[in-house]
């Protein structure tokens, strides 16, 4: 268990000291959100309506951005081979890496989301549900992303491949995340935000199993 936490600590330290990780993702998030009003026009009512969806789409894309270095850097300097030989099972390694990715990319994005919501004229009472839904859903992004990153390890120009592989799996998170956020803003008959939140939690729990197992299988397939 110590090795597990040491690995998470290493991920966080690397992200803070080396740079190019979470900070860049937040910056990308900001830029994506700020070009939306330029694209659809500055109509505030329209922006309010599309704000939850745009924020979630931008969150998905920003989370993708840092995935290609998740295992690639370790593969290049040989750390990944040490993980394979080490005592910690590969599933736990993937879980630790995914958790580290969430801490350094997912968490900053969630913190930044309400500020960016202001840019899209998201009402204040929507901020809480937005952050709650993102907090529940974003671990799934890191866990499923870890599978994609593990599949594309050692592939040249893997970043593009990861997006193609991972985005289809992100769709349930997007659907339930947006409907949970939107239900808090507009009372949709028959569609309660609570149900969407539960489904979002279910997606995260499924990916908690699928992510480490699939990611470890993909790493083994790639490195053997």
């Amino acid at each position: 268990m110590n090795a597990f936490f040491a690995l998470i600590g290493r991920e966080v330290r690397l992200a803070i000291r080396v740079g190019g990780g979470g900070g860049m993702a937040v910056f990308f998030f900001l830029i994506t959100i700020s070009i939306v009003p330029l694209g659809v026009g500055p109509d505030l009512n329209l922006l309010t309506r599309i704000a939850p969806g745009m924020l979630w789409v931008a969150l998905l894309l920003s989370a993708l951005l840092t995935l290609d270095r998740l295992f690639q850097a370790d593969q290049e300097d040989g750390t990944l081979d040490l993980f394979l030989m080490g005592g910690l099972s590969l599933e736990l390694v993937v879980l630790a890496k995914a958790f580290g990715h969430w801490l350094t990319t997912g968490l900053p994005l969630i913190v930044a989301a309400p500020v960016l919501g202001l840019l899209l004229n998201l009402p204040l009472e929507g901020m809480g549900p937005l952050m709650l839904a993102m907090a529940i859903g974003s671990p799934a992004l890191s866990l499923l992303g870890a599978v994609g990153a593990a599949l594309a390890v050692g592939v040249r120009r893997g970043g593009l491949l990861i997006s193609l592989l991972v985005l289809p799996f992100y769709v349930p998170v997007l659907i339930f995340g947006v409907s949970a956020t939107r239900a808090a803003l507009i009372a949709v008959p028959g569609d309660l935000g609570g149900r969407s939140l539960l489904l979002l939690g279910a997606v995260t729990l499924v990916s908690l199993v699928l992510g480490p197992v699939g990611g470890a299988a993909a790493l083994r397939a790639n490195l053997r």
């Binding site: 599949l151 499924v206 397939a221 790639n222 053997r224």
Partner: peptide
């Protein structure tokens, strides 16, 4: 290698 990696992807995608 492509066969192994693609097989893992196909199995993960089978949840759909």
């Amino acid at each position: 290698r492509a066969a192994r990696v693609a097989a893992v992807f196909a199995l993960v995608g089978a949840v759909n």
